[in-house]
Computed example of a mutant assay.
Amino acid sequence: DAGYATGHFGKWHVGPVKKDSPTNPGGMGFDEWLSHDNFFEMDPVLSRDGGPPQKFYGESSEILIDEAINYLEKKKQAGKPFFTVIWFGSPHEPYSGMETDLALYRDLPQKYRDVEVILTSNETGERIKRSQREVLIERYAEITAMDRSIGKLRNALKTLGLRDNTLLWYCGDNGTPPSGLTESRFRGFKGKVYENGIRVPGVIEWPNVIPKPRTSTVNTVTSDILPTLCALAGVQIPEIPLDGVDLVPLLTGEMTKRSEAIEFWSFRGSRFYKGPPKPYIDPKFQKGTTPLVKKMGGLFTRNFRNDHHPEIRELDFMGPRAILSDDFKLVIDGDKGTGVELFDLKKDIGEKNNLAEAHPDIVEQLSKQLRDWQGSVMNSLMGRDYK
């Protein structure tokens, strides 16, 4: 609506990317896409604008960036502003890498050799045990290729004369899995609501607005991207409940505290209900077409499900959950038997000192905020916000 060309490149993970899927990138507003239903490794198989999957030979991050640069060049020639989304497949197990990148890490400490980790086999797609040292070599090679690709994109923006007035926003989507985790000052890992599961890198480059490098201690989350980009594009935010806040004041150096808490919840889903699920979308449109190395449900592809939630029950509010304010973080059932935990992350980033007994008033306040937010999520899940 604001006149931007829109393109998506890489991992989609919202639904199949095939042409007849109502949840493909086109169904979500993208004019063009070169995408995969889920994640991918070397020599990825991708679909262009919903067409038949096609194998691209080479390192996947470099392939995505080359395609994205071609897209940007066309939009510049057409005099069209652009919104371009690049979701890398890296780093993600099962890991792989180019030999030149793997060679950079052959001298990793031998202490990791005797540590066994569980991950997917590139050969069988099944879960196997491997030496963490070999896994780390491959993981770091993927990160190196991704880093190099981002540098290529930045150079291309400069060459095209687009760098100064292009907002380049990089962030991770979740924490490090056990297979890639060694020493860390954070607690937990991917899938947990402790810091190693939710704290990820966030880097924004926009020379016209951020002329000098700086860091911020304000907590932000990927839910902030939508209201921020709407504000920058002059588009009104949809009048439905949304998480996230407008970060434009943060970009301009005016925001020093966050106005709203950030919540996290490992929702259990509808699997505890008896009877067949009622799908929102015909299952035939939910079948994946782009192949995976990892076997899922006995298939080398990802089939998706979007089922109606039958009713809201007290059981639905269970599961690991957390709320992060400017001063404290409340964690409920973060691990088996941990119960209620309260941390002051400014003094205890490792989440070692539980302050729940010392501050029952804060626990009560944050618990209510968290429960209210869960209720809002459940209302959305039931479709009450979208009628």
Rank of each mutant, 00 (worst) to 15 (best):
D1V: 03
A5V: 02
G7K: 06
H13M: 00
P16D: 06
P16N: 08
P16F: 06
T23Y: 15
L34W: 11
L34F: 13
F40H: 13
P44C: 05
P44F: 03
V45R: 02
P52I: 00
P53G: 03
K55V: 02
Y57Q: 04
E62Y: 11
I65Q: 10
D66K: 15
E67M: 07
L72V: 15
E73K: 13
A78L: 13
I86A: 00
P91K: 05
P91Q: 08
E93G: 14
D101F: 12
L108A: 08
P109E: 10
V115M: 11
E116W: 08
V117S: 05
I118Y: 09
T120L: 01
E126V: 00
R127S: 08
I128H: 04
I128K: 01
Q132F: 01
E142H: 01
E142I: 01
A145N: 09
A145R: 05
K158I: 03
L160S: 03
N165D: 15
W169A: 00
G172H: 01
N174F: 10
P177T: 11
P178C: 06
V193G: 11
I198T: 04
P201K: 04
R214A: 05
T215C: 04
T215L: 06
T215Q: 13
V218N: 13
V218F: 13
T220C: 14
T222H: 13
L226I: 15
T228W: 11
C230H: 14
L232C: 07
V245R: 07
V245C: 08
V245A: 11
L247A: 09
P249R: 00
L250R: 05
S259N: 10
E260H: 13
A261F: 08
I262V: 14
E263L: 05
S266N: 14
R271Q: 08
R271N: 09
F272G: 12
Y273R: 13
K274V: 01
K274G: 14
P279V: 03
Y280W: 15
F285A: 11
V293D: 03
M296V: 14
G297M: 00
R305F: 09
N306D: 10
H309P: 06
E311V: 15
R313S: 13
D316I: 04
M318T: 15
P320Q: 02
P320C: 04
R321T: 01
R321P: 09
I323M: 01
S325H: 00
D327K: 09
G334Q: 02
D335G: 06
G339Y: 04
L345A: 06
K347V: 03
K347W: 04
N353P: 07
N354P: 11
L355I: 05
Q365A: 14
Q374D: 10
M378F: 15
L381I: 15
L381H: 03
L381V: 07
M382T: 05
